[in-house]
Amino acid sequence: MADMQKIQLDILGQVCPACLLVVLREMNIHRQQLKNGETQLIIKTDHRDTTRTIPESARKMGYDVEVRNLETYYEITIGKK
């Protein structure tokens, strides 16, 4: 989808659990757009454990999740594929 809105969240170097909390909040705010596939959340994080907790929470809410290992951090994408 060309007109998909991509929301970038850079949580590198922040306190644990900032990543989890910010993502949960954004998922709530953009619930409708995420469900319709109009929006994707793209998160950059260096919290290793969030590569477990965020995908788990997002999948429970019915979203597709993809995690990529980049340079020194992780990129988590949430939304419909």
Partner: peptide
């Protein structure tokens, strides 16, 4: 695992809390 990286200072609220 090539994960060592200094990302700069955190937001001030977090720094105070830490």
């Amino acid at each position: 695992y090539k994960e060592f990286k200094i990302h700069g200072l955190p937001p001030w609220r977090q720094a105070v809390a830490a």
